[in-house]
Simulated scan of single mutants.
Amino acid sequence: MRARFKVLRAAIPAAEAEAAARAVAQTAPSFLNRLAQNAGLAPQQAPVALYCALPGEFDAAPLLGALAALGFLTLLPCAAAKATPLVFRRWRPGEPLASGRFGLSEPPPEAPALTPKILLAPLLAFDGEGGRLGFGGGYYDATLAALRAGGALLAAGGLAFAVQRARDLPVEKHDAPLDFVITEHQILDFMGDSCACSSSAM
């Protein structure tokens, strides 16, 4: 299944992928701001963790820039040993990045580490019930388990192209579910306490 969705994702034309990222940057901030407001938090009190996209992944950079412009604290992950929780460090557009594990770009060690209130993860596939198919490293499963156990996380979601939706995903006990998924066409909200929405403009 991972191989199939890698091929499917790689077939998305670059121009289409860029348009999808721009669309999400226009529509997702209001949803994320509402999550913070529902918890009684201003943007600067609700750090949002995103990621630096690898080739083929949904590009989170436009959304990160939009959130930073609204006053959100924006974070990027730093990976350690396999299947261990990620550390998130503050990063804003224009600040330096260092080379991390697996060729990932991440904030330098001197950037302050913060605990995210909202987390957005990359993925290979998702389903209509919050299931997420990751890349097999276990980083996000371990991270979500740790953050949820600590009680600080408001919500965890995924960024994906609409074609990455699967009918049924194999879910195991250690697989951490998502609270929402944002695509270029809709926001799937699995929490039930905030408005799920779909828009042809996205």
Rank of each mutant, 00 (worst) to 15 (best):
R4C: 05
R4L: 07
K6N: 01
L8P: 09
L8H: 07
A11V: 07
E18D: 15
A23K: 08
A28N: 06
S30H: 15
S30D: 13
F31E: 02
F31N: 03
F31A: 06
R34Y: 11
R34H: 10
A36T: 13
A39P: 06
P43F: 07
P43R: 06
C52I: 09
G56L: 04
F58C: 05
F58E: 01
P62K: 06
L64Q: 15
F72R: 07
T74P: 13
P77S: 04
A80T: 03
A81Y: 07
P93W: 00
G94Y: 06
A98F: 14
G100I: 04
R101I: 14
L104M: 11
S105Y: 08
P112L: 05
P112I: 01
L114M: 13
P116C: 08
I118V: 11
L119V: 07
A125K: 03
G128T: 06
G131A: 10
G131Q: 05
R132H: 05
L133H: 03
G137V: 02
Y139S: 04
D141Y: 00
G150V: 14
A152G: 15
L153W: 12
G157Y: 04
F161V: 02
A162K: 10
L169G: 06
E172K: 10
L178C: 09
T183M: 04
E184D: 11
H185D: 06
F190P: 15
M191Q: 09
A196G: 13
M202Q: 12
